[in-house]
């Protein structure tokens, strides 16, 4: 990609950006796609305004650092922070406290909604707390050690939590709560669920991934990374798992029997820069990736074509999110740079 020149980056022709002055911990679009939010290390959440030229509204959310953000089951967002609070932030910036957990950090949040129901989730220490869409406590799921990652499946029926020595898979609506415990020794640091619930995959402390095929519990071990994988994303079809942690986007095949015994596909490599964030396009077989030098690019998985979006130089990419229709990409970096890229056809 070193041959690309500066004017070829989409940021110049189709981007809006700001310097927000604090570590961008996460980014999300709300369910309507109307508003994007950036969660920051200074405790605020910045929303995108109705018109691109207007100032970005500042929401004073957490006293400390925002640790996690996700689209709410309603319009707006849910956030967790190191002030021990689980918050709901409306598209207009209204803050509602859903729960308060004292001196414990709210490290992970998730939400799901469809026409009939929905669920909100957050993790605090060893517990995952589930709430109704209205914000009423539903249940608390307790794990043997601290929850390091939280994922809801694509139907909102199951929640997966990673922790030491494996991950636990719970049914949200179960009458009696006992998880399916997927065991593998070691420290699991994050979790992602296959969109058709074929598999669950965790990232591990030892620069590798571990997976379980849900049909038969078959283990899969994906290793070779030079650093820890902090970001994982399945393509919409569930054919590919895109991952960070290498000097390219590493994509594992989840078709034709799964990744076992196969080499992954590597895209956008060659610059000796670590991929730090990945986000698969919600419609097409394409993946957006952010790198430690600030580069953001879109890779078409079928053809391997690379579309450069943001040039290097804005700090390591720490947040990446698509709008649900795939028309816009939000990104943020450790040094506080944030941008929106518009992909709508012109």
């Amino acid at each position: 990609m070193s041959q690309t020149t500066e004017r070829q980056f989409l940021l110049d022709s189709r981007g809006t950006s700001r310097e927000l002055g604090a570590f961008v911990v996460g980014a999300a679009f709300d369910r309507t796609g109307a508003v994007a939010a950036f969660a920051l290390g200074d405790g605020t959440v910045r929303l995108t305004p109705p018109h691109p030229t207007m100032d970005w509204p500042v929401v004073e959310a957490h006293d400390g650092t925002v640790l996690a953000i996700a689209a709410d089951a309603r319009p707006g967002f849910v956030t967790g922070g190191d002030d021990g609070r689980f918050l709901r932030i409306g598209p207009d910036g209204t803050v509602t406290e859903l729960a308060r957990f004292g001196s414990k950090w709210v490290e992970h949040v998730a939400a799901f909604a469809d026409a009939r129901s929905g669920v909100l989730a957050c993790s605090v220490g060893k517990s995952a707390h589930l709430f109704t869409v209205a914000g009423q406590p539903l249940k608390t799921l307790t794990h043997p050690s601290t929850v390091t990652g939280l994922a809801l499946d694509s139907k909102g029926k199951r929640v997966a939590a990673s922790h030491y020595n494996g991950c636990s898979l719970w049914f949200v609506a179960a009458k009696t709560d006992s998880p399916r415990f997927m065991e593998w020794k070691g420290s699991h640091t994050g979790v992602v669920l296959h969109p058709a619930a074929d598999a669950v995959v965790t990232s591990m402390q030892e620069n590798s991934l571990h997976g379980w095929r849900l049909a038969d519990g078959q283990h899969m071990r994906m290793s070779g990374y030079p650093s820890k994988t902090e970001s994982m994303s399945f393509t919409r079809s569930g054919k590919w798992l895109a991952t960070s942690g290498a000097e390219s986007i590493v994509l594992w095949p989840f078709f034709g029997g799964g990744p076992m015994g196969k080499a992954p596909t590597e895209l956008a490599g060659g610059d000796n820069v670590t991929c730090t964030r990945v986000a698969c396009h919600p419609q097409h077989e394409a993946v957006a990736a952010g790198f430690s030098d600030g580069l953001v690019a879109l890779a078409d998985i079928g053809t391997g074509r690379i579309l450069p979006a943001v040039p290097p130089g804005h700090g390591a990419v720490s947040a990446l999110a698509w709008s649900a229709d795939g028309s816009r990409l939000a990104l943020g970096t450790e040094t506080g740079f944030a941008a929106l890229i518009d992909f709508t056809p012109r």
Binding site: F23, L40, D42, T146
Partner: peptide, 18 residues
């Protein structure tokens, strides 16, 4: 052996402003 909680907490603290 390592302190898994410290890895998470130190990573969280490093995101703080200032």
């Amino acid at each position: 052996t390592v302190r898994g909680d410290l890895i998470r907490i130190l990573s969280g603290l490093m995101k703080r402003k200032g």
